[in-house]
Simulated assay, not measured.
Amino acid sequence: MSQQATDVTHRLIAGPAGRIHMVEQGTGPLVLLVHGFPESWYSWRRQLPVLAESGYRAVAIDVRGYGRSSKPAGTDAYRMLELVEDNVAVVHALGEQSAVIVGHDWGATIAANSALVRPDVFRAVGLLSVPYAPRGGPRPSEVFAQMGGEEEFYVSYFQEPGRAEAEIEPDVRGWLAGFYAALDGETMPGTGAPDPHFVARGGTLRDRFPTGPRPAWLSENDLDLYAGEFERTGMSGALGRYRNMDRDWEDLADFDGAPITQPSLFVGGSLDASTMWMADAISAYPTTLPGLMSSQVLDGCGHWIQQERPAEINRLLTNWLSSLPV
């Protein structure tokens, strides 16, 4: 681990469902960083020191079920509204009344809903990789079940308790390395190769991972850290997010079609399936994100955007943060 990544303060604070682990660096206005699947606070190791040097109090958390945060037993403990309240608890535990929130992957969806549900706390929101799409339409499980034809979409695969755990947990390190490579802009399968977002009937997700080199951003030490956390905790807490999408759809019924009006930022990768599949959501931003200040798609970038392109993400983040109303 680099000196920049270790020059941080680790803390455990009380949250609604137990302890929340956070890593803090710097002083100034609070910026809360929320990771996605399957990651940890460490996904922001390239952003924490840069934000601190730019005059911000940068805080990256382990989302509930990950890393050093608590891992409740009940699946419904990972519903969106619970994770929103975790973020609120972090802000208040740090003695602040408001924060800018930035998320990647599932963290982007958590950040978006935090801003939507608690605009009194989250004054601006940055989204990496996964665009904002307001709640609406059919029940999510019904939508995912229709995707893929003879194959099964990875979200449906993850939603069945125990199934993905049986694939991943016997070799967490190898699985993570393959999953990261499958969605990285430089190591993802080429055109015409089977899509790693889908599972053949009777197969596993891992069957379609590339077998070449690891992503350039993923060192042996990085992979050791990620794997060590999941080997200790298991995967069910992280997968709980996928298993609550129908509950979220029910819980957020009052926000059907609702825009996020705070100042916002979106950055995606041109090779990221999230950006490509949700192009209509990006096109709808004038309506759904009326406070959008910047929207960028990085050419040739995959899904792990702040790790693949740290310098570009740091520049975009700090420029956006410096332009926010005080």
Rank of each mutant, 00 (worst) to 15 (best):
F153W: 13
F153C: 06
F153A: 04
V155P: 00
V155R: 03
Y157F: 09
Y157L: 07
F158P: 02
F158S: 02
E160V: 15
P161T: 05
P161S: 04
G162T: 02
R163M: 11
E165V: 10
E169M: 12
D171K: 03
R173C: 06
L176Y: 02
G178I: 09
Y180G: 01
Y180K: 01
A181M: 14
A181V: 15
A182V: 02
L183H: 05
L183W: 10
D184Q: 05
G185S: 11
P189W: 08
T191Y: 00
T191F: 00
G192N: 11
D195N: 15
P196I: 09
P196T: 10
H197Y: 15
H197D: 11
F198D: 15
F198Q: 15
F198G: 07
A200R: 15
R201G: 09
R201Y: 05
R201S: 10
G202R: 05
G203R: 07
L205I: 11
R208Y: 05
F209R: 02
F209S: 15
P210Q: 05
P213F: 14
A216W: 07
A216Y: 05
A216M: 10
A216S: 14
W217C: 13
W217R: 15
N221P: 04
D222A: 09
L225Y: 15
Y226T: 01
E229C: 11
E229R: 15
E231A: 13
R232N: 12
R232F: 13
T233W: 07
S236H: 13
G237W: 03
G237A: 13
A238S: 11
L239S: 03
G240P: 04
G240N: 06
R241Q: 14
R243P: 01
M245T: 08
D246N: 11
R247E: 02
R247K: 05
D248E: 15
A253M: 01
A253D: 11
D254G: 02
D254Y: 00
F255K: 01
D256P: 00
D256H: 06
P259L: 14
I260N: 03
I260C: 07
P263Y: 00
S264V: 03
S264K: 01
L265Q: 04
F266G: 00
F266M: 01
G269L: 10
S270Y: 03
A273T: 11
T275H: 06
T275V: 12
M276H: 09
W277N: 13
W277V: 11
M278K: 14
M278V: 09
A279T: 13
A279I: 09
A281I: 07
S283C: 06
A284I: 00
Y285K: 07
Y285C: 04
P286C: 08
T287D: 12
T287L: 07
P290C: 06
G291L: 10
L292C: 14
M293S: 10
M293W: 05
S295I: 12
Q296D: 12
